Computed example of a mutant assay.
Amino acid sequence: MTASALTLQAIQQAPKALLHDHLDGGLRPATVLELAEASGYDDLPATDVDGLASFFRTAAHSGSLVRYLEPFAHTVGVMQTPESLHRVAYECVEDLAADNVVYAEVRFAPELHIDGGLSMDAVVDSVLAGFADGEKAAGAEGRSIVVRCLVTAMRHQARSLEIAELAIRFRDRGVVGFDIAGAEAGFPPTRHLDAFEYMRNNNARFTIHAGEAFGLPSIHEAIAFCGADRLGHGVRIVDDIKVSEGGDAKLGRLAALLRDKRIPFEMCPSSNVQTGAVGSIAEHPFDLLARLRFRVTVNTDNRLMSDTTMSHEMFRLVEAFGYGWSDLQRFTINAMKSAFISFDERLAIIDDVIKPRFAVLIG
């Protein structure tokens, strides 16, 4: 099948692995409205589904990471009870399974969901229960999916060690890693070295949002000082790659190190356009990095704000760069290789699910 035959509908049938998806960025607009009504949250900017969906999409497309993050106040605002957290987590799994995502790591910041009096342990309990129930329901409908959790600390706050400890407490119950997120400028990852050291001391994995709204120093610190296993976004690594008029690429020392060490890039094309990290999908460094054999992966970031799915993200890349089935398979296997579950679990999903299903599509 040629790239021209890779329609959105065809891509929806492909198995997918997702590493970078924010729980509070993926709510259904109708759910936001219903949860707001149930909780008495009266700050929503619209009171109908279409109007609310339009608000999130428009507000997020701001050209600024800081402004992109502002609409999250509304989704977080309606996620302050065990019931709301369970529902959002359950529907997250339901929506991902409907898009044929077979493995997902979904992240959220527990510290943002305690305004209603919940402890952070109770917050994580509710989300994990929602994921588990969602997996069972999807399986009963013939859509097998594995969903694991990353707990995130906000980089402008000072609770990262507490969140890292939370990750370790729940490591055998569905939490597979740790992350820091939020505005990059002025909040370097090195502010949280104690949290990263704690994760390393406990033989645990973590990723860091870096190189999205800030440049190479953010990526350098995440790798050299913090020891990140993966990079959230990392688009600014392109600043360390020089491409000649003839198309030859010369990698700087940081870019070469990341490629040599097979550091995974959790790339989120649509989101990167919205935040102004890149001008358009066609200008996204994804293709350059893919051609240079960096370990690039395709991700949604925030499905509500970007009005997207994994299928849409892949289709946009196909439209921009002419990818075929073998390319999409490679990106999917890249993601599965980079997941924070055990090697045996990763290999089983690659060999028993991803490769056989792509073999059917490739013909």
Rank of each mutant, 00 (worst) to 15 (best):
L216K: 08
P110K: 08
T47Q: 15
G174A: 08
T309G: 02
F315R: 13
N202D: 02
L6H: 02
G25N: 05
L18T: 12
T275R: 00
D248A: 14
A249R: 06
G252M: 03
Y68R: 06
I349A: 01
W325Q: 03
G182T: 10
S4Q: 15
F214D: 15
H22Q: 10
D125V: 12
A222N: 08
D24S: 13
G51Q: 04
A213I: 11
R107A: 13
V93Q: 04
N272A: 03
I350T: 12
I354S: 00
Y323W: 14
T275I: 09
G279K: 11
I223D: 01
N201K: 15
R173T: 10
R191N: 15
V124Q: 02
I168S: 07
H312E: 14
F206W: 05
F187Q: 14
F178D: 04
G139Q: 07
L251H: 06
D42C: 10
D239H: 13
N299V: 11
L128Q: 09
T47I: 11
V298R: 02
G182P: 08
S62Y: 01
A167P: 04
V78Y: 01
G322P: 04
G324D: 08
D172R: 13
R57A: 14
I168M: 09
S62P: 06
A222Q: 07
G232T: 08
I208P: 00
A256D: 12
V147T: 07
I11E: 02
S144R: 15
D125K: 10
P29V: 12
G324R: 05
L258N: 06
A59N: 05
L231R: 05
D194P: 07
L6G: 01
P356K: 03
T81G: 03
L193N: 07
M314C: 12
P110W: 03
M305T: 13
L258D: 02
A36N: 06
T190H: 10
S160R: 07
N201T: 12
R262Q: 13
E212K: 10
I163M: 09
V66A: 15
M199R: 01
S342W: 03
M154T: 14
